[in-house]
Simulated scan of single mutants.
Amino acid sequence: MKIEQSLLRRMWPQGDRRVAGLIAGTAAVSESVFARFGIDTPDLVAHVMAQLSHECGAGQEVVENLDYTAARMMQVWPSRFPTLASAAPYAHNPRALANKVYNGRMGNRAGSDDGWSYRGRGAAQTTGREGYARLAALTGLDLVNHPELLIDPRYFLLCGVADFVACGCLPFARADDVVGVTRRLNGGTIGLAERKAWLASWKAALAEAPVVIASPPLAPDLPADPTLRPQPAPPPSRWSQLIAVLRAAFRRI
């Protein structure tokens, strides 16, 4: 299946705001990416695109925003920041916050910059060195050394769909179980109502989209039927040759 650029632009109207060319790049590779992972029905495409639409904010939130206030940090990570004083050093300091909350887990090395380097990124908001390494193995892209490739328009959908499949979402999508898909991808049910709304929107949009059937390849040019080719005249008989000689002789008399 293929998502036409016009449809994706309608669903993600601000999709190019953060990454130029994201809409065109995603639409261009959609058919090959879905085929690669066996996403072969409109409902499966709808489940994938619903989750990715929510995760990346329809293309507007392709890199995790960690610019938090101290009060917000206490809400998101209450065990790490039980007081305003504990959160204050990381307020509006995204890099320090990423390393504080993500290092020492998800494959990120303690005391490193891994938390920042491997913060949520891409269509599925892949997070952690282990997550990036897993996608690298699935896609063949060097995402550990080049994490920015997750938001490259050429690979944005590939990485998002690979993460969807790697998380074990596909069986639940085949069963039309949006809760199961969400739990596998998210680890919980955060944003479930919005994900359900996205799923309904994508199902409706794909149902309205025309089915594009590729034209069969043109048949190779066939040689012309030899029976229709001009045939050489048969050689003249000896009798016809004699008549021709006599005619020529009479003309000279």
Rank of each mutant, 00 (worst) to 15 (best):
L138E: 02
M106V: 06
W198Y: 14
R10Q: 15
N186P: 07
A137P: 09
E194G: 09
N103V: 13
L8A: 05
V212I: 13
E208S: 13
V165W: 10
T139E: 11
K100T: 04
P210F: 01
M1Q: 01
R184F: 06
R238I: 15
A209G: 01
A224P: 15
A224R: 11
H47M: 03
T182N: 02
N99R: 03
A20Q: 04
D176C: 09
R18E: 14
D67A: 08
I213R: 14
S86K: 08
E55H: 02
M11Q: 13
L52G: 01
A207D: 00
M11E: 08
E31T: 11
A35N: 05
A249T: 14
R109H: 14
A133D: 06
I213N: 02
S201R: 15
R229I: 14
G57N: 06
V165N: 03
G187T: 09
A24G: 05
V211T: 15
F164A: 05
L192K: 07
T126D: 04
V19M: 11
G187C: 00
V212K: 01
G140R: 05
R121D: 03
G168S: 03
M1I: 14
S79G: 14
W198C: 14
E130L: 13
A204H: 13
A58I: 12
D114V: 10
Y132D: 00
A27I: 06
P210A: 08
S201K: 15
R121G: 02
P89W: 00
Y102M: 03
P210Y: 04
Q14K: 15
V212L: 02
A209M: 11
V48N: 03
V245I: 15
R154H: 14
P223R: 06
L8S: 09
R247H: 14
A87P: 01
W239V: 15
D113R: 03
A87I: 03
L246C: 12
R195L: 00
T227H: 11
M106W: 01
A197S: 10
N103K: 12
V181P: 02
A166Q: 10
Q75H: 12
A166G: 10
P171Q: 01
S6Y: 05
P147L: 04
L22E: 08
D163Y: 15
L199N: 03
R238S: 15
M73Y: 06
W202Q: 03
G188F: 09
L149H: 09
H146S: 14
A71F: 13
Y102C: 10
W77R: 06
A162Q: 04
T83S: 09
A214W: 12
V179S: 04
Q51A: 02
R238Q: 15
Q5L: 05
V161I: 11
V48S: 10
G191A: 05
P78I: 01
W202T: 12
D16G: 08
G115A: 00
W116L: 12
G128K: 00
A110G: 13
Y132A: 05
R174T: 02
A224Q: 10
A24H: 00
F250N: 09
D67S: 12
L150H: 06
N108F: 07
P89D: 08
A224I: 13
G104K: 03
D43V: 13
S86Y: 04
C159W: 02
A70L: 06
A110K: 13
